[in-house]
């Protein structure tokens, strides 16, 4: 016993080092699996608060470009509205209660964004108290951003599409051939659409949209255009480089999408009494 204690005392620096290194290694490994990084994330009270203060100052600098984006989106929505063939007047007074509602949108402000690491996350200013939960989708007016993976009371962390853990169901706009959208860490402008069937008529410049097979995003949200594509070594599937519509390095305001029928669909897909 005496010897063990002596050993510990003699090597206490090394043991301390091993302990702390082990702890940080465990945290690192944990952060590589989705939904498990509960502890270390910037959506907590303290870091969220600091980022909020800084954002309060910083947001004035990109007001101009944010206004421009809003204007473009308004322009697009207005042109859809005015070019409808049906009774225009009626659609002006369209109330959300008139439709059966499947998606609920919440606007949010991005407090922190990163795109240079291999696993990138965003921090936004909406959290549990605004009804935000895990697995809600996040988009901008131009295209998708990512999926909520952690929430605190008033902040949430978004797993960006620029994250090696991210898998998003996507498809070609014109033919509905599906694939899974991932990121190979090379460029923040390009994401990779994998496992697209070789029968798909892919051409450069084609639009890629979300597939609507997951319960996170509605079908048809724009992602990007085909930059180039190669047949995989196996010869059965394409890997497509997708040039994202969103400039992921400059994200200011986002919308959070809640799929209101999600639970129903999920219980249908995974019956309990199997």
């Amino acid at each position: 016993m005496q010897q063990i204690i002596n050993f510990v005392i003699r090597n206490k620096t090394f043991l301390l080092f091993l302990l702390l290194f082990g702890v940080s290694l465990a945290l690192t490994i944990q952060s590589h699996s989705y939904h498990k990084s509960k502890f270390i994330n910037s959506a907590n009270f303290f870091t969220g608060g600091v980022y909020k203060q800084v954002n309060n100052i910083g947001q004035y600098f990109d007001l101009k470009s944010e206004n421009q984006k809003l204007l473009e989106e308004n322009n697009r929505l207005k042109s859809i509205l005015f070019n409808r063939e049906t009774d225009t007047l009626k659609s002006f007074y369209a109330d959300s209660t008139m439709y059966s509602k499947r998606f609920k949108l919440t606007p949010a402000v991005v407090y922190k964004n990163s795109y240079s690491a291999t696993n990138n996350y965003l921090t936004i200013n909406k959290g549990k108290k605004d009804g935000i939960q895990q697995d809600f989708g996040v988009i901008t007016s131009k295209g998708i951003i990512g999926i909520i993976d952690n929430t605190s009371n008033s902040y949430a962390r978004v797993q960006s599409i620029l994250n090696t853990n991210s898998r998003i169901n996507a498809q070609l706009k014109k033919t509905s051939h599906i694939g899974s959208l991932r990121w190979d860490t090379k460029s923040p402008e390009l994401a990779q659409l994998k496992d697209v069937s070789k029968f798909a008529p892919v051409a450069e410049g084609d639009t890629i949209v979300t597939g609507g097979q997951s319960t996170i995003f509605p079908k048809g949200i724009p992602i990007g255009t085909v930059n180039d594509f190669v047949l995989d070594i196996g010869g059965d599937t394409y890997t497509i480089n997708v040039k994202l519509f969103n400039d992921m390095t400059n994200v200011g305001h986002v919308y959070i999408i809640e799929h209101l029928d999600r639970e129903e669909i999920e219980t249908l897909q995974n019956p309990v009494n199997e």
Partner: peptide
């Protein structure tokens, strides 16, 4: 905590401190 990176900075910092 601030950069959402799991424990990579902690591990590197402990190593050099040691």
């Amino acid at each position: 905590f601030f950069s959402d990176s799991g424990g990579v900075h902690a591990a590197a910092a402990v190593t050099i401190a040691y």
